[in-house]
Design a protein around this nucleic acid. Structure first.
Lengths: 218, 218, 218, 218
DNA sequence: CATGAATGAGTGTTCATTCAT
DNA sequence: CATGAATGAACACTCATTCAT
């Protein structure tokens, strides 16, 4: 669709869009503002993208591509859980540091509703959902993880913790919330957070409980 | 701030606001729409609330009050972790079912930025952050929980899992995401999710690891 | 649809719209300009009319109503052709003088195309087309008009002459064109034009030709 | 004004312009669209024509040239009214069939206003106005036409009927209007319309009335 | 010299907020 | 007091015109 735009300029425009959408959401971001950030005129946006929604999708696809790049490097090498999780955590921490606005945009996207939300969720989460579920199921089959868990739900919990970690690095609200727990901004480049999260995950994933405590109705 | 409004009408107005903000966010929700939902005129809104932001804050305070009611009932009785967590989970599941729009509004709020975000986070998360951190620290001191953990970070992880659970019950995006993991909507009234989450938490919180695996630089 | 607007203001708004559409056409006229002419804000227009096209149709209906008022007064009393035509001509001359912008708007409408044009033509011309055709057919049956004519086509020619007369009174282009024929603006309040047009029509409608001249292919 | 363009390309560009102006009017037609239709770039348009209005005038002059060609062939041979009118009608019918967009453009032009309208009217109608008025005056002097008419006004009525005929062949609105009178599209290549119009004209132009009916004030 | 990408003022439409009734 | 009509700034999107390549 793009012809004369250099790849560089194209990226600059998309990054400007991602920043705007990250700050204000799909509805709140203004095309004029995006153009100004990117150093172009509104006309250019409408030359290459049919409308705001189309441009938004282009930003999303652009961002997903770089996210997938990062994940590909990690998920190639099968590993023990701790190594695997540690690599993913550090990869996502890096991604958060370098592409905070992408994470913020994803977070904005989670406020979507209706069928639009469903399509976005599938587009964004589909890859990791399968990735994590499959890995965990395989590791469970190999006997590396506890047998008494539903791999799908545990994968879900795993991803939940990772998502919240990213949001806590990038989104103002979650950063403030993190500070409430730890009394300050994210410390020491995330080293300690990483270590504690790994502890948390290792125990959760590997320690089988003697028996499921029986609970009657609430 | 309110004078002649009956308490009943006041609640109706605030609930209408919460629903609107839950659907569309602070910026997206329309004052005229809110007035229509509440069966009043816009004039009334502006009589009792100076502007949209002020009204939004009133909605938030109203919602926080009912959330604190729920939590108070649970957190009064000190308990073993499993019992404690189980009670909270079920309380939040109930709250999600009965007040989905409140949860969705909280979620919308997490997209705030700047100092506004900080103040909101403190207002909303302050209570639970202290609650969870203190409980966990005390339980750890009693020797009920593992000693090799940072109680603040583990409280943070604990709250992360609970927040995501609530969003996964109430917000369209997270519901769709949950379906990607579990191949359908939230099942059996959340019984199974609750059970698995408790397993996850119990192991994470009680099982001490032999040694923290040493990791060099990324 | 209108509630608080006085009938007076409503008319003022519609007249402002008619003037704007008369000058610039449906596409060329600006809602902001119309609001300014009517002494209101754009918001009012959009409160009472869903969009520009809807407002345009309201203007058209308003204008057609006043046109039909004028025609009703004339066409009630059946008359000999000359009296009938004379009355219509004078009524339309009056209408042109008092509601020039309406005529100019009709003229703008004739530039429509596609199905939109068809619907407009039926809405605007349907009444007069039937009126004239029926009158002429009846007068022909009574033996007052020549027998060797197709009443529908002659009604069509009759209406053509009337339309052009109105345009020649109201539209700048046609006024200038009229001046080319008569060396000045429309003279003496249209008395002479009326007299000559009646002569033209009377002969055309009443004089039967000896034989239709036979013509072969072009 | 044109330099390197072949005559062929020049015509193609002007025809593309005429079609666009015919469809959408001076204001509505888009320069980019015109360039696309003509298979050139917008830059070329602005190389040879200073702006849209200038280009529009070039289109108009081009069209007038071909219209004058057609009229010249007819009006050379002086003839009796019926033959003269018949030739003109058929010539205009042919022109309408072959150059419908030209007629539609003329029609669009009639929506002009102010001094712009005056200049256009003189440019377009000047020729025929003089042509018809002179012919009729001469024929009247020869005793072929009725003596009790104003040749200028009768020429005006004559041209009115011809203009409307052309519009009724080419413009969507007038086509629909014609259908209201005759219950369908223009029939049989216009043969019947031509015959009836000739009847109408012959009687109107040749039959002298006994006395002008005296009319007092309305 | 042709191209068509870039510009940016202008248009239709929405919505927070005010204020006459 | 309550109402909801009126205001007007803001935003998505278009298109005549320019100018770097």
């Amino acid at each position: 669709m793009l012809k004369k735009l250099t790849e560089e300029k194209r990226e600059e425009i998309l990054e400007a869009g991602i920043e705007a959408f990250a700050e204000s959401g799909l509805h709140g971001a203004g095309m004029a503002d995006i153009a100004r950030r990117a150093g172009i005129s509104v006309g250019v946006l409408y030359k290459y993208y049919v409308n705001k929604e189309d441009f938004f999708h282009a930003c999303l696809r652009h961002s997903l591509a770089s996210l997938e790049d990062v994940l590909r490097q990690v998920t190639g090498r099968e590993d023990k859980l701790l190594g695997y999780a540690g690599q993913i955590i550090r990869a996502l921490q890096d991604f958060s540091r370098d592409h905070g606005s992408h994470i913020r945009m994803y977070h904005q996207i989670t406020t979507a509703s209706g069928d639009f939300a469903r399509r976005l969720a599938e587009e964004i989460e589909g890859v990791t959902a399968r990735l994590y579920t499959d890995y965990i199921a395989r590791a469970q089959a190999r006997g590396e993880l506890r047998g008494d868990m539903d791999p799908r739900l545990f994968a879900f919990f795993f991803d939940n913790l990772l998502m919240m970690l990213q949001f806590s690095y990038c989104c103002d609200y979650y950063r403030a919330r993190f500070a409430l727990y730890c009394g300050g901004a994210v410390p020491d480049g995330g080293r300690q957070v990483e270590a504690e999260l790994l502890k948390f995950l290792e125990s959760a994933f590997t320690t089988e409980q003697a028996q499921i405590p029986h609970r009657e109705e609430r």
